[in-house]
């Protein structure tokens, strides 16, 4: 279980939010909502341990994430704003490297299947620099098909630049992950057709 207690986030000299408490239980999808600049990305980065909160703690299974980085990061999948793709590598090479980074092992066949499933079957051998924004986004999302064993998914604007078919595929994957007892935290500005209503977490309530 992921618990955040009493979080405060300072950006420059502005306090974005404070006294923020968030508890995630298995099988729930939490959607963080807030205006631009409300601190959605900052919150997600704090939850991942990429940034430190000004105040407060984040715990995974009752243990502080900063003190147990290796255990926590083995359970976490974070996809940020930046797609983490190198322009000179092909989608397949990028995906394989992303998995190796996370300490995961997947066969080439599994990687190719994941890329075909997200609709990049024809682009397997092209360098990432010739891909469109939506296609680049898809390459990073292909990781979701191969990382089902990681319980906690933190996704920053995963639906940006995707077409309708890809959004539907992604929604299905996220809901399947929740049904398995996984945790999903995401931000999005789009109206996404989730089958089950997601839990909405209003950042505005904690704004200063």
């Amino acid at each position: 279980m992921l618990t955040a207690t009493n979080l405060a986030c300072l950006k420059g000299d502005r306090l974005l939010f404070r006294d923020l408490d968030l508890a995630l239980t298995p099988g729930r999808m939490v959607r963080v909502v807030g205006a631009n600049g409300a601190g959605k990305t900052s919150l997600l980065r704090i939850l991942c341990g990429l940034a430190l909160p000004e105040y407060g703690t984040v715990e995974w299974d009752g243990r502080n994430i900063c003190a147990n980085r290796d255990v926590f990061h083995a359970d976490l999948l974070y996809l940020g704003h930046l797609p983490a793709l190198d322009d000179l590598l092909t989608p397949l090479e990028n995906l394989r490297f992303a998995l190796a980074c996370g300490g995961e092992q997947a066969s080439d066949v599994a990687c190719i299947e994941a890329l075909e499933r997200i609709g990049l079957g024809a682009q397997l051998d092209l360098p990432a620099r010739v891909l469109s924004q939506g296609q680049r986004r898809r390459v990073s999302l292909a990781r979701l098909f191969l990382s089902a064993s990681r319980p906690l998914w933190v996704l920053d604007e995963p639906f940006t630049a995707l077409d309708v078919a890809a959004v539907a595929e992604l929604v299905q994957t996220l809901e399947a992950h929740c049904a398995r007892g996984g945790y999903v935290v995401l931000t999005t500005h789009q109206d996404v057709p989730f089958a089950h209503p997601t839990e909405v977490f209003e950042l505005a309530k904690y704004a200063c």
């Binding site: 991942c48 341990g49 990429l50 980085r69 290796d70 255990v71 990061h73 083995a74 976490l76 974070y78 940020g80 704003h81 930046l82 797609p83 983490a84 793709l85 190198d86 322009d87 992303a98 980074c101 996370g102 300490g103």
Partner: peptide
Amino acid sequence: ARDHADGTLEQLLLSPDPAALW
């Protein structure tokens, strides 16, 4: 610089393996 710009560095820092290795 390159890894920082494209987000790979974040993913590397989120790796469960010791950072000194990579």
